[in-house]
Nucleic acid binder design. Structure first.
Lengths: 231, 231
DNA sequence: AAGTGGTCTAGACCACGTC
DNA sequence: ACGTGGTCTAGACCACTTT
């Protein structure tokens, strides 16, 4: 009988240890919550809290009646923190700068129209550059649906980026993100200050609020950019 | 007095609604747990569970004594599910295939040595290709520390990829991941079946177990690959 | 039918950071 | 010092799913 494991972090640690040490090998059924609570000398709720945390990390599979099993293929969940670009740059200790390239209310081209599923209305198209210590850092190409972002048409976006303004002023209920690699066109290369054809890291993001599309944006990062994540 | 909000998901939903509707605008201090519990007619623990979930999603900042505030800059947390490559391909409905290119026990070059911080010993270097429906999908270039992966030297990796074997047989306590874009060298282009210079999506991952480095790997995905994430 | 995890409760004490 | 969130408890009932 193990004793003194009374807080959920300690329980979690012990559970992780057993998984790691293969005392509970992949696929194995582990004791139920009540038994573990008895063994550890704590309440079942405490065990539940710990097991739930480990399960959220992907290392346990829990099913009612069937019990808790050690995951066979622990799907690694990496969490990306996608902050406002200004913040990201300032956190690196660099000086942030911003330049608006274009801001137009236009009817979107077909691909954008398809993604945002907007009606007949025009969308606001904004293109801008973000700088870190005067070096181009990212090129932002964004379409904004005025129906999804009140007051957006009054924003000049000449000093504050759409990236930042939207996050502050526009609620959203969901979104999806795609990460990819893209060869710089000559125009992009010129704007970002790199070579044509250079491999650029691209982040494409669509955001909606309920049934209304809010914005779709592509961020092209200068050559050499790497996005960090933790396991 | 709102009534009938008795389970934590319902409380969470109501909290999200208030944030979204700007009833609780960004930066605002929201009522404390006890008051909300009274208002909703449930136990404080239920409110705590809900608020904790919303805070984990990045929409609330909670501090003892200072209370709970709506986050000013809701850092979007996107979660990447990084599965075994075989699984990823099969989930797309494609047929998975694998080919080992190289498997050698060698002294690592300086950059790898620096990352893994291993001693004098040799590392296992494995290069392999993953196919989806006979089309090259990803190129795996991996260094494995025998000290961190028992029995790895007995694995031929001719039928099962190191990607899969390690996940199944080698515990780890942590890791870090970097995502970037990379121009294909001529050799890489040949192996992946693309053009030299094509922009390739790269995932670089280092894994360790306690103080021991386990493996460092670079996965180069064929041109056109996009990694999906959800908000 | 039965056993498992999922959740709620009411109360309590604690840790922490602001006041 | 004191108010806040963080956590633990013991018990209870419920929902799901497998047997």
């Amino acid at each position: 009988m193990t004793k003194g494991i009374r807080n959920w972090q300690a329980v979690q640690q012990e559970v992780l240890r057993r998984i790691n040490a293969r005392e509970w090998p992949p696929g194995a059924l582990i004791p139920n919550e009540a038994d573990l609570a008895t063994e550890f000398g704590c309440a079942r709720a405490t065990v539940n809290r710990a097991l739930r945390a480990v399960a959220e990390a992907g290392l346990l599979d829990r099913k009612r009646r069937a019990g808790t099993r050690v995951a066979l293929q622990p799907v690694a969940r990496a969490t990306l923190s996608i902050a406002v670009i200004r913040q990201e740059i300032e956190e690196k200790g660099a000086r942030y700068d911003y330049r608006l390239l274009e801001r137009k209310l236009v009817r979107p081209p077909a691909p954008v129209h398809r993604i945002l599923k907007t009606g007949e209305g025009a969308l606001l198209h904004v293109r801008a550059l973000h700088f870190a210590d005067d070096v181009a850092y990212a090129l932002e190409d964004r379409w904004i649906n005025p129906a999804g972002a009140p007051a957006v048409l009054d924003q000049p976006f000449d000093a504050t980026s759409a990236n930042e303004w939207l996050l502050e002023h526009t609620p959203y209920t969901g979104g999806d993100i795609a990460l990819s690699a893209h060869n710089a066109t000559s125009a992009e290369a010129q704007e970002l200050g790199g070579a044509e054809g250079a491999a650029l890291f691209a982040l494409t993001r669509n955001t909606w609020n309920g049934d209304t599309a809010v914005t779709c944006v592509r961020l092209l990062f200068a050559h050499g950019y790497a996005m960090q994540a933790d396991l």
